[in-house]
Each structure stands twice: as C-alpha cells, then as structure tokens.
Design a protein around this nucleic acid. Sequence first.
DNA 1: ATTTTAAGTTTACATTTGTAAACGGTAATT
DNA 2: AATTACCGTTTACAAATGTAAACTTAAAAT
Lengths: 150, 150
Amino acid sequence: MEVSTAVNISAAEWQVMRVTWTLGQVSSQTVSEVLAKKMAWKAATVKTLVGRLVKKGALATERDGKRYLYRPVISEQQAMDTASQVFIDQLCAHKVGKTLLKMVQDTTLSQADIAALVTALQEKQKTAPTEVACNCLPGDCQCAAGECNC
Amino acid sequence: MEVSTAVNISAAEWQVMRVTWTLGQVSSQTVSEVLAKKMAWKAATVKTLVGRLVKKGALATERDGKRYLYRPVISEQQAMDTASQVFIDQLCAHKVGKTLLKMVQDTTLSQADIAALVTALQEKQKTAPTEVACNCLPGDCQCAAGECNC
DNA sequence: ATTTTAAGTTTACATTTGTAAACGGTAATT
DNA sequence: AATTACCGTTTACAAATGTAAACTTAAAAT
C-alpha cells in the first residue's frame, strides 16, 4: 500500500544527500569537506543537516569505530522523481508542457538523454489529448476571455 | 542588469497566485471562495497569504471602493520558469535528463506540447554533448567505480 | 597517562511557512 | 442613525529551515 516513504528533504539537506548519493557511504568529515568547499558551510552546519537527515530516515548510519558512516536510504533517482512530481503537481496542468519545454531548452542534455526523451514523446503522442485543461480553479476554469492564458 | 526580480513564492502562496493568474484581477473574496473549495482554507488563511504576497511584491493592489483588487505582478510563465530553474539547479546535472524523462512520462501533455518538445529536442541534439558531467562534488567527481551512478 | 582531536549531540536563534483568530474601520443595510 | 457585514491589518503560534556555536565523549597521539 506504499506507506508514504516520502521523506521531505529541504534544499540545504539536498546538498548533503547529493554527496552521499555520489560517494555512496561517507563519513561526516568527508561531507563537511565537500560542502565546505562547494557551499561554504561550516562543519557545524553540515553536522546539523546530517543529524536531521538521519532523524528523518533519509540517511542510515553504520558505526565505524568512533564515528559513523552515512548512507542514503532512498535512491537519488527516486528522490528526484518524487521532488519532480511535487513540483509539477503545484503547477497549472495546462501550462506544464510549456514549462517542460523551457526546462528542456535551458538544460544541458546528453545525446542519450535527448534520444530517450524523443522516443518517450513519440510514444506519448499516440494517446495524447488535444488540450490539457487548466486546473487552477475548482470546477471549470471560469476565466473571462482574454483575462487568462488558459 | 536584471536586479533580481525573483520573488520567493511558497507552495501555499503559489495557490493564491494561480487564482490571480487565472482570473487576472480578483478581490480577496473571490480568492477565498476558490481556495476554500479547492484547498479547504479558511478566509483568514487566504488573507494572510494575500497580505504576504503583496508585501513580497508578487501581487499589486488597486483600490476598488472599500476593498482592493489584486493583480499578479509577474507572469505565471515567468514564475514557473524561475521555479523550474531553481528546481533543476539543485539536481545533479548528470541526472537531470533522466528526471525530465520521468516528468514527461508522468505528465499529461497535449499534442502541441509534445510537438514543441520534440522540435526543441531535435534542435538541441545538433549541439548536445555525449555526456553531461556530474557536478555533485567540487572539482571532479571522485566517486569510486560502482559506488555512484555518475 | 595525559592531552589533543575529531565525532556526535544539544542548544541557539532568526526566518519562513502554514494556518488562523482577533481587531478595527468603513460601507452597506435596516 | 444604528447595526451589520466585509475587508484589510495585527497578532498568534507551532513547525520547518538555514546556519552555527557549545558541549560531551571517546579515540588517537604524545
């Protein structure tokens, strides 16, 4: 039944997660070194974030002598997909397409990424509707002509 | 020089913005009615959010007798684009493609949206790199073989 | 064995966010 | 004219977030 494994990871915490996703299993010292350089954060700040992530269940710990090693509990891809969903869900359904277009245009993508996207889109095209209705208002979108872009 | 017009709009505030984006110029009563139904928010809650948005400069006011009419200061598309950028920027550059793919797959898009995306992607393909490097760590990604998905 | 270090834990503290009640004033209704 | 109904403004208040110092303890170095 999928008991809401969805942990909320804040923007700052996300940076810590990225280090663990990238390095797999890390000491907090490593995380601190990386983020001191990348984010100009004090070690104390990183400690707090790591602590919160452990409490939230986003990081698992394993004793390693006097210290701990931290390991991500959820995969990066899954976390990104969840975050994407949350992001998209808050937008007007009618305008999601335009926004995805902007994202695609403004992002560096590899040949493979592009190919995969094109394939998926072509597949999607087979069953895509002509229009996606605006869902900004409950019931029908009642915007007067010219007053909105729905 | 683009003096950071970027206003921060929280998730709850975003709902208020959507109403103004959709209806163009609204009384707080209208916003309240819409969101009471859509979000089950009390009128007081909406008042707070509207007030904060005005203070943040995201909504402009115009007197209308005893009350105000509210109007969005920035366009929805621009707000969405900014939010998208912020969202994408926090992700590992190497994995943005996969995430966009997921978004495309999980979202309802119109024929026109899909066509526009395909066109943009084909154009992008001409200059796309073979690989997009991971930028999770400062300097080179030092993940050991097999320990990360970079 | 003593001191230094490094780790984790506790405490701090201002802001932002979500949610809303209370208050005060003006316009509309009785 | 008195009263009611709205509307905007103030106040409330807990939780989350960003940022970090202080404290405590155990291991490492001398």
